[in-house]
Amino acid sequence: MTARYDVDLPDGRTLVVHDTGAHTDAHRDEPAVVWHHGSPQSGALLAPVVAAAAARGLRVLSPARSGYGGSTPAPGRSVADAAADVGHALDALGVPACHAVGASGGGPHALALAALRPDLVRGVVTLAGVAPYDGTDAWFAGMADDGGLRAALGGRAARERFGETAEFDETSFTEADYAMLAGSWAGLGDDAVRAGQEWPGGLVDDDVAFVRPWGAALADVTAPVLVVQGGADRVIPRHHGELLVTGLPAGELWLRPRDGHVSVLGALPVAYDWLRAV
């Protein structure tokens, strides 16, 4: 049975964590999976994430980043700040070890948790994850719509103003992406729409954090990392995966040439198997 925890953080804020519960007996000694959601998302458990883990007897915890899904906002938070919140919550919930898995905007946060808490994180998977901003225009290359991230360079207020009139660019997704959203991952699309409407500040804070120093270095991620990137991704292009692997001490790139930003999530079951083997 799934549960929701409202975890008290050291500074008085609250972090909402969704939890599928304990492992099956056969896998009780394996690390839990900590799912770091994309931008925007509520943090609620997604059916394909849970189903693939359940088939392997694994527990999934899904924290809602500050500003999303009932977690207290923290304007100006860095990627490392959000990851530290997750570390505190896992300690409070008595989770001794985990695998950090992040999709899209969750990728940086999964990596930051591994950098900050090597005692806790055994392995990492990023799917369509964002690479650290390097200050060059090339970082934006291949994005169908880079307006939000470019606006974020001007700070939180500039990103908020952009969001007041911004509309989703439908060319950001491929035919394969739309097929996924019409099928098994429909819940992700519904949740993203809800999160964008109810918690727009969460997306603003994410975008600003992505184009500023993360507060955690890729070089400090000692756990093995599988970087899964779609070659046809028009949201976070393939070169972000290449940038990530270049900076990681133990990174492995799995490039899926035909996948877009959503369809790459079809790799999740095999990525779970990869984690269990590290």
Rank of each mutant, 00 (worst) to 15 (best):
P73H: 01
L275C: 04
W274V: 02
P75V: 12
V130D: 01
R13E: 12
G183N: 03
A53C: 07
R4H: 04
T14C: 08
A151S: 13
D134T: 15
D145N: 09
A267L: 04
D259F: 11
V208W: 06
D206W: 15
G67L: 04
A92P: 02
D11R: 07
F140H: 11
T136F: 08
G148K: 05
T136W: 05
H23I: 00
S71V: 03
C98Y: 07
T246A: 15
A80W: 05
D177T: 15
R13S: 15
A83E: 08
G241R: 05
W254N: 04
G202F: 06
G202L: 04
L15F: 01
R59T: 01
A84I: 10
A192H: 09
Y68C: 13
E175F: 11
A216C: 05
M143G: 04
S62L: 09
G231I: 11
E160W: 15
T246K: 12
T24G: 00
V228L: 11
E242I: 07
S62M: 02
A186S: 14
P10F: 08
L188G: 10
H27Q: 14
H36T: 06
V227P: 02
V17T: 13
S263A: 15
L120H: 03
D19M: 00
A232H: 13
G69L: 03
E175M: 08
L275H: 08
G154H: 07
V270M: 15
A26M: 01
H99T: 02
G67E: 02
Q229I: 05
P31K: 11
L127G: 02
A179V: 04
L61G: 10
H37F: 11
V33C: 05
R159Y: 14
L45D: 10
V17Q: 03
